[in-house]
């Protein structure tokens, strides 16, 4: 066992103490007013950190680690979509960029304007070029979005395959599985053609692309049965309940994966796990705030809460 990142892992373990606990979450949900809620959030040191701050901190502990970058691929490709659409529509992309990102999102806008993609990370250059061609030829935003989303998953799986960590491999696989199930379910609901489903799905070892697409064309019940048969019973059950419950399941499986690193004193996996935990924490706070604004009752909010890492 390598003893790399001993300092980073120990620091992360110390920081985990300040992650929100179930009691903290209950307190936030029970806040009497929006002002109380904001006051409570401000009083929790951890809750104030943005994902960008967390990322910067993790990178300061592991500046040379390439494997951690996979955690930001979704943001990177989202920024690519935002830049492409903004260049085509002439809007300011800055408002649509998400952070943290592995590259400065403005570079994507510049790349689309100049048609020179060499400034982008290698894993997205080809996608950027092809997505631009696709969108300018078809002017179909949905098609280019699904093309970029699929490329993001493929880039994730490809990067994960190159690294030795089973954690990262599992992370990429789960992310792709969740995304594929979501796409296939939408295809089934919207009665999309087999061709569209096949072009939008990424495919993984556990959920093969073509058969998943065929199941989606047969309807939602056939799709859910297919998912069940391939070892994702909980995913099918939560989809039967509601898409919101399925979204929660997608986040929860990643937290369960993060929990597998709980006893590791070395390696970069606990750093990745901490980032995943912070993502879930920030999502929980966002849900509580939105539910508070929309006047949802406490039980509804509790049902939507993502698993906690603590």
């Amino acid at each position: 066992m390598s003893t790399e990142y001993a300092s980073a892992v120990a620091a992360v373990r110390a920081m985990e103490c300040s992650l929100l606990s179930p009691a903290d979450i209950e307190q936030l949900i029970g806040a009497d007013s929006a002002e109380d809620l904001n006051g409570l959030i401000e009083s929790k040191k951890s809750a104030q950190n943005t994902l960008s701050e967390v990322w910067e901190m993790l990178r300061s502990y592991a500046p040379d680690n390439e494997e951690l970058k996979i955690l930001l691929y979704r943001n990177d490709f989202h920024n690519l979509k935002a830049a492409l659409k903004s260049v085509i529509s002439g809007r300011n992309a800055e408002d649509y960029f998400v952070y943290p990102s592995n590259f400065e999102p403005k570079l994507a806008s510049e790349a689309f304007t100049s048609k020179d993609y060499s400034g982008l990370p290698e894993y997205m250059r080809e996608t950027a070029s092809e997505a631009y061609e696709l969108l300018t030829e078809t002017m179909d935003g949905q098609l280019s979005d699904s093309f970029i989303d699929k490329a993001a998953l493929k880039a994730m799986i490809s990067s994960a395959d190159k690294c030795k960590s089973s954690f990262i491999k599992k992370y990429a696989e789960l992310t792709a599985v969740c995304s594929d199930i979501k796409i296939a379910y939408r295809c089934a609901l919207m009665k999309k053609s087999l061709k569209f489903a096949e072009s939008a799905l990424c495919g993984t070892e556990k959920l093969e692309k073509n058969t998943l697409a065929e199941a989606s064309v047969e309807g939602t019940e056939a799709l859910l049965s297919y998912i069940e048969e391939h070892g994702f019973e909980e995913a099918a059950d939560t989809l039967r309940e509601s898409p919101a419950q399925f979204e929660k399941w997608c986040d929860d499986v990643l937290i369960e994966l993060a929990e597998t690193t709980r006893s590791s004193p070395f390696g970069y996996e606990p750093l990745a796990a901490y980032y995943i935990a912070k993502e879930a924490e920030i999502k929980n706070i966002r849900i509580i705030k939105v539910c508070r604004e929309s006047g949802s009752d406490k039980n509804t909010v509790m049902e939507r809460m993502r698993k906690l890492y603590v």
Binding site: T3, A6, S7, A8, V9, A10, A11, V12, R13, A14, M15, C17, Y61, P265
Partner: peptide, 21 residues
């Protein structure tokens, strides 16, 4: 050396744990 690295990681976040680590 590597336990020291781990200890420094903890102390960088919470200096009060120095004596324990």
């Amino acid at each position: 050396g590597f336990v020291g690295e781990a200890a420094a990681g903890v102390v960088s976040v919470d200096p009060s744990k120095f004596s324990k680590v």
